[in-house]
Nucleic acid binder design. Structure first.
Lengths: 189, 189
DNA sequence: CACAAAACCGACCGTTCGGTCAAGAGTATT
DNA sequence: AATACTCTTGACCGAACGGTCGGTTTTGTG
């Protein structure tokens, strides 16, 4: 009888995921075409549909894989305090700018079934960072803690919007500056 | 002989701009269709093309009008310090969330000719805020000042992403919290 | 080797979208 | 009243896109 999946099925899937992530992030998910994504990966469009059911399924897999790894890293730094968490988020995924950008697109494009698990992963990040912030500023009420947490995420997420590789501060330098800034800000609340 | 523009040309143009801004922001510029935008404004698609040359021209006008007003408000608060500027940005355009969101889309969608003047307006905001920050933290070198400025914009711009009207802190309360946070952060740099 | 399923592709299809057009209705000027 | 221009519309068009299909090649298994 027959055969299972091919030799390197998961590897090729990952290659498509990575290639498509760069292409999607560069052009924006909506403007990016599946034909273009396939060409960026060096394969035919039909092959992409062999590995993925739809354009949205591909986007989901990209962001889901990224967020899952990010949660792992952040959970590993859970006890390293605010500075450790900021460093983990900014440094650990230095090569995942594309995936990080797409994360923002995804929430506005995916339907609820696919968005929900991504939001759940994001919420885990929020809870971890929020807890670390509360340790430093234990007097904050719930609403203010939440607003502060989202402000910190604003700083971190915005980084991918304005930072240009090999220009200005290095990632490590910015990580220290951001941590100083956040910790100083917490003291003032 | 003939006649000039109609009685309320500019008013109707503004109505289309406002209506389309809401529709575009809700669905995302790329996914939003001109037919849908026209319906949201209660007019035909052909009429929108009577007032605007293209979908991009409409987006440009929306964002350009918004940024122009924002620059006016911020310049008026130029001498009110960091707290005044943060308050101006967050409060003055409480009803322009849609336009503010579109501002982000626009940079990735418009071609250079149209993007350039918008970037120029944004740069004026950056310079004003950057100057105010430098007053509070005069020892920051240029690179760190720029990174800090963008971090503050991250806080402010992110607000439109997570804030839900009539939930959590009011805009005014958050404005104070954000100012406290930023000023505290500056002291720590 | 035989053979069935996976891997892969070029061509194609239905739909949607940005944009155009021809024509009618309304209105300020002469 | 005549005119010339704006305002407004429904119908239409070509292009691009997401997705499918029929078929060929490759590869693991018995």
């Amino acid at each position: 009888m027959a055969r299972g999946v091919g030799r390197d099925h998961e590897g090729k899937r990952t290659a498509i995921r990575k290639g498509a992530a760069g292409y999607f992030a560069q052009h924006g998910f909506d403007r990016a075409s599946m034909a273009g994504a396939a060409k960026a990966c060096g394969v035919s469009k039909a092959l992409v549909y062999h590995y993925y059911d739809s354009k949205e399924a591909l986007l989901f897999d990209i962001v889901n894989a990224h967020l899952t790894e990010l949660v792992d890293v952040v959970e590993a730094a859970e006890n390293d305090g605010v500075r450790g968490l900021i460093g983990a988020i900014l440094l650990a995924y230095a090569d995942a700018d594309a995936e990080h950008k797409l994360q923002l697109d995804a929430l506005g494009v995916l339907d609820d079934d696919m968005r929900a698990p991504l939001v759940a992963l994001q919420r885990r990040l929020v809870v971890i960072l929020s807890t670390a912030l509360a340790d430093v500023a234990p007097d904050l009420d719930k609403q203010r803690l939440h607003a502060t947490t989202m402000s910190v995420f604003g700083i971190l997420n915005w980084y991918y919007m304005w930072h240009r590789p090999n220009k200005g501060l290095s990632r490590a330098e910015y990580s220290e500056l951001a941590a100083d800034f956040v910790l100083g800000g917490l003291r003032a609340l």
